[in-house]
């Protein structure tokens, strides 16, 4: 860029180059997470370098949002909906307890074979077919312990 182009933007709400880079941070972290599985130091460093942002800023942002993962997760992240509808449908607690026992892990943990991570989430926007479970980006509706059994077997066999 020539010094002329470097001049302060004329409109007060036009972002500076720095602000423009910063505005890409959330998307960049999302992409990095998809590539690395979770946001490890290497992923965060690469994001910081590509956007020209300080490491501290990248880490602050990544650790602020609960949907970014700073620790490794299993190949399949099982998110059991803990929202109101799923509760009323009598599912959430039963399903979480059932999966916990079946996999031998607590909520937030990953099985030792690295296959499954169990999480509870606050509504996956499927109230009409509650109780709902999401595995990675796929939705499973009207869940019962029997359906969970079939689903886990199927995933483990993939």
């Amino acid at each position: 860029m020539s010094p002329e182009e470097q001049k302060q933007p004329t409109h007060p709400e036009t972002p500076t180059a720095k602000q423009a880079q910063r505005s890409m941070l959330l998307t960049a972290l999302y992409i990095a997470q998809a590539q690395y599985g979770h946001l490890n130091d290497e992923a965060l460093q690469r994001v910081a370098e590509r956007l020209g942002l300080p490491l501290s800023e990248v880490y602050s942002t990544a650790s602020f949002y609960s949907l970014y993962r700073l620790k490794p997760v299993g190949r399949y992240v099982i998110q059991v909906c803990d929202g109101l509808s799923c509760h009323l449908a009598g599912g959430a607690d039963t399903l979480v307890d059932y999966i916990r026992q079946k996999l031998g892990i607590r909520v937030g943990e990953t099985t030792s074979d690295g296959l499954f991570t169990l999480q509870t989430v606050e509504c996956v926007a499927s109230c009409g077919t509650s109780p709902a479970v999401r595995v990675n980006d796929e939705l499973y509706e009207n869940m019962t312990p029997q359906k969970v059994d079939r689903l886990l077997d199927q995933l483990a066999g993939r």
């Binding site: 880490y59 602050s60 602020f64």
Partner: peptide, 26 residues
């Protein structure tokens, strides 16, 4: 650290009650 020294070492990690001052990648 950011505005005066422009070294950008410090940040705040996590949120709410878990917030803490941190450096670089924690």
């Amino acid at each position: 650290c950011a505005e005066l020294v422009a070294n950008h070492t410090l940040g705040v990690r996590e949120r709410g009650i878990h917030s803490m001052i941190t450096a670089d990648l924690n």
